[in-house]
């Protein structure tokens, strides 16, 4: 089932939580909504589910306008951040709930429900725990019960709100791999919300980066990491450094000095230069380059990180770059480098 969101707007007490958002999700895709808190990612998920009503805009499931349907009619599977298991029901009763509340004509036979529950428990590797109550389960087990419960109604779309947020680091890693595997086996269109970029980049087919109620970029992990299309995405995903620069013809200058790189397009005359710490070289003396004073030097796993102060001593820009392990520089000494991959974004108007 493909999902299409068009010009969606949501206001809470006149405050826009989501501002003109459009997005197309292909059938069977695993999509991550990534952004800092307050970026509107959970609001978007809840709008798709039907837990909130949009102020304006539409949501389509295939050709159906889902915005005309209640949450009950949309047939979505939703996994809540804190699982929202029914604590007075056993694991089996929790999973069967969505089937037992169906109208009499559509409700499967008792034996059929039992069989489906057993299948789902097996699928989430929890066979044997059907008689337990939620408070007798570990966090990871609860999370999988919640998933099985959502899958029991054979949803068209699976929606997960911070699915790993409440788990400790080790369980989180395991479940992340397991969820990818689970998705590949069932082939459901799946959307999950996360604020953890590592989780989004590792797990999703495509990542939707959001900020302040708007979509900044949609793309594969490679796209958003290697080809970020906005200063926000560049600085939000991965490590980065930035410097104000000017462009004169074929040269990029920092504080009036050429720094040895040339712009790809010529329509910018001033902007912010972004680059990643690992995308630098230390050029031989004499070639134009950026120059900074080393304020600290740290060993980080297989690399060495240099903290540099660039520019006027009164108000320097701080930049981190990776340097070869063998490099020996004293604190306070000057170090010259040049970005190998970079992007310039014009100053916001």
């Amino acid at each position: 089932m493909d999902v299409r969101v068009s010009s969606l707007r949501k206001e809470f007490d006149r405050y826009p939580a989501l501002n003109d958002v459009s997005l197309s999700i292909r059938s069977g895709e695993l999509i991550a909504l990534l952004g800092p808190s307050g970026s509107g990612k959970t609001t978007l998920l809840r709008l798709i589910a039907g837990l909130e009503q949009p102020t304006a805009g539409n949501i389509f499931f295939g050709a159906d306008d889902a915005s005309l349907k209640t949450v009950q009619e949309r047939n979505i599977g939703f996994v809540f951040q804190h699982y929202a298991l029914f604590r007075h029901m056993t694991v089996a009763e929790n999973i069967a709930f969505g089937l037992t509340v169906r109208p009499r004509g559509l409700r499967p036979q008792k034996a059929e429900i039992r069989r489906r529950v057993a299948d789902l428990l097996e699928m989430v590797h929890l066979s044997g725990l059907e008689k337990r109550y939620p408070n007798q389960l570990s966090g990871g087990q609860r999370q999988r019960v919640a998933l099985a419960r959502a899958m029991a109604i054979e949803p068209k779309v699976l929606l997960l709100d911070e699915p790993f947020g409440a788990l400790d680091a080790k369980v989180r890693k395991e479940l992340r791999r397991w969820l990818r595997d689970f998705h590949d086996r069932t082939g459901h269109t799946t959307v999950f919300v996360t604020h953890d970029q590592e989780e989004a980049l590792e797990l999703a087919d495509r990542v939707v980066v959001m900020s302040q109620g708007q979509i900044e970029q949609v793309g594969s992990s490679d796209d958003v990491y290697d080809r970020p299309n906005s200063p926000f995405v560049f600085s939000f995903i991965g490590d980065s450094a930035s410097l104000p620069v000017t462009v004169e013809g074929e040269t990029i200058r920092f504080r009036g000095e050429a720094i040895g790189i040339t712009p790809s397009t010529g329509d910018i005359d001033a902007g912010t230069l972004f680059f990643r710490p690992q995308d630098v070289v230390l050029p031989p003396p004499g070639e134009p380059a950026l120059e900074g004073r080393l304020s600290a030097c740290r060993r980080l796993a297989g690399t060495r990180i240099a903290d540099l102060d660039i520019g006027p001593p009164g108000a320097p820009h701080h930049v981190e770059i990776e340097i070869p392990l063998a490099t020996t520089v004293r604190t306070g000494a000057s170090l010259r480098f040049r970005p190998t991959r970079w992007k310039i974004f014009p100053h916001a108007a």
Binding site: A49, V71, A84, F86, M89, F97, V101, A152
Partner: peptide, 26 residues
């Protein structure tokens, strides 16, 4: 927990079912 009521709704339960089978037992 409001999430529990929302969970029941996403699973297809109408308001009466949510009250009778989720809220009252709790």
């Amino acid at each position: 927990d409001r999430e529990v009521e929302e969970a029941a709704a996403t699973l297809g339960a109408n308001r009466l079912q949510t009250i009778g089978r989720i809220l009252l037992p709790g």
